[in-house]
Design a protein around this nucleic acid. Structure first.
Length: 436
RNA sequence: CGGGGAGUAGCGCAGUCUGGUAGCGCACUACACUGGGGGUGUAGGGGUCGCAGGUUCAAAUCCUGUCUCUCCGACCA
């Protein structure tokens, strides 16, 4: 993509309303613009990152045996009345009336809807287990939205729902999601710690929050140093018992500041790590909490009818964009992990008016594209300084600077955004290195 | 929902107290110079001062109402 044609409205100055790094940087880097409090438009580069994250989440869900579907954003209130949550949910739920006076709502979550879909179609235990998920926009009318996409009212969420015959089988489904989450966050370039969680309005007796570590995170977290030794990229064989892995990840102490009690902490202070974190995932096993009142039942092997055992598993996809930036930025701007970066490399033409320089840039641009590399080519007439600053701001993993000075010696400069390391090498070598 | 703050050009702000031709920096347009870390000069364009009433010869400025945004608290993926 040529920058001269790309819709990337970057800002040199900080917008007054943005308090935290990710919000500030998302606005400055031209990723989002606010429509109303807690509601954002995603501009091309922001959307690209969002889609990249979404895709990694999707791949890991699919790999864990979940199947994607898509439920609507607007739901009928009837189902919520049936589950008893229509009144429980309170003002956080955006209620809408259609032209016929029917009560509708913009879904804050989808347990009722998925349970309804399930109960209408599934009759036999032979159809179990099932795990269905979708990635869809949700709305929760937060009292006070803040921190940009981290605490918006409208947000993109992956939510999966598992259905099993027995609690034991349900636990296995829960474990599969647990491991999928470890892998997902690792692939996103994040360090995530699972913590035992309050089940809140969703309910149930087994639940974990996944907290991503970031120096500027919203809450303080405490966890055992032992987590550092665990590898999140677990290879899962189909049908394998994941309980030992889950046990390994849940046997160590981890707590947010709300629960943490320094006096009675079971971990020696020398073994305890204190940091800040952002909740990006939450998984629940809640048994028959919804299946029972909503009569989602299957016939078992003995012919008996039993409510299915359910779990639900959420990932804040849009929130992750902010969380990743909180975890990956410096004073100059964003530092994208390569897995989610909007482009892999930024190609900087430092002197567009120099025909030789521009010819060399055009060729590298063509070569990089031919090699299948996603490249943002700064072909604008801005000064070199402005180009470097802008490229640092938007945080592409690699910067390829091409100017007459280097070309005279047959070299271009390749800079790693994260380490700041710069090397000079021949244009073909640079393309080869980026293609590797 | 309780308590603060703010709405003036795309962004950041001054002007409001003490009413009298709407300003500054950045960004934008044109030209020239410059050219490896947000460069320089010259000349330009752009705002019914959030909205609605009111007071006045005259309102960004005073009064009333209203909407929006934002910060702190309780709540949350």
């Amino acid at each position: 993509m040529r920058l001269s044609r790309y819709f990337l409205p970057t800002l040199k100055e900080n917008p007054a309303e943005a308090q935290i790094a990710s919000h500030r940087l998302m606005l400055r880097a031209g990723m989002i613009r606010q429509g109303a409090a807690g509601i954002y438009s995603w501009l091309p580069m922001g959307l690209k990152v969002l889609k990249n994250i979404e895709q990694i989440v999707r791949e890991e869900q699919d790999a864990a045996g979940a199947q994607e579907l898509l439920m609507p954003t607007i739901q009928s209130a009837d189902l919520w009345v049936e589950s008893g949550r229509y009144d429980d949910y309170g003002k956080e739920m955006l209620r809408i009336e259609d032209r016929h006076g029917r009560q509708m709502l913009y879904g804050p979550t989808n347990e009722e809807l998925i349970t309804d879909i399930f109960r209408k179609e599934v009759r036999s235990y032979r159809d179990l287990p099932k795990n269905l998920y979708h990635i869809q926009w949700k709305f929760r009318d937060e009292i006070r939205p803040r921190f940009g996409v981290m605490r918006g009212r409208e947000f993109l969420m992956k939510d999966a729902y598992s259905f099993d015959l027995t609690a034991e089988a349900g636990k296995a489904s829960y474990n599969a999601m647990f491991v999928a989450y470890l892998r997902t966050f690792a692939r996103l370039g994040l360090k995530a710690i699972p913590m035992r969680a309050d089940t809140g309005p969703i309910g149930g007796d087994l639940s974990h929050e996944f907290i991503v570590l970031a120096d500027t995170g919203e809450s303080e977290v405490f966890f055992d140093k032992a987590f550092d030794a665990l590898d999140p990229m677990i290879e899962v064989d189909e049908g394998a018992d994941l309980q030992p892995i889950v046990d390994a990840w849940t046997s160590h102490y981890a707590a947010t500041d709300e629960i943490h009690d320094a006096e009675n902490c079971p971990v020696d202070s020398a073994e305890l790590i204190t940091g800040r974190g952002i909740e990006v995932g939450h998984i629940f096993f809640f048994g028959d909490k919804y299946s029972k009142p909503m009569n989602a039942v299957v016939q078992g092997p003995e012919g008996e009818t039993t409510p299915v055992q359910m779990g639900s598993y959420g990932v804040g996809v849009s929130r992750l964009v902010g969380a990743i930036i909180e975890a990956c930025h410096d004073e100059n701007g964003i530092v994208w992990p390569e897995s989610v970066a909007p482009f892999k490399v930024g190609l900087l033409n430092l002197r567009t008016k120099d025909d030789e320089c521009t010819a060399a840039c055009d060729k590298m641009y063509a070569d990089l594209k031919a090699a299948g590399i996603d490249v943002l080519y700064d072909d604008t007439n801005d000064g070199a300084g402005a180009k470097f600053a802008n490229m640092d701001l938007i945080g592409l993993p690699w910067q390829l600077a091409v100017g007459p000075r280097g070309l005279k010696n047959g070299v271009v400069e390749l800079k790693n955004r994260k380490t700041g390391e710069r090397v000079e090498l021949a244009p073909e070598e640079a393309v080869a290195k980026l293609s590797a």
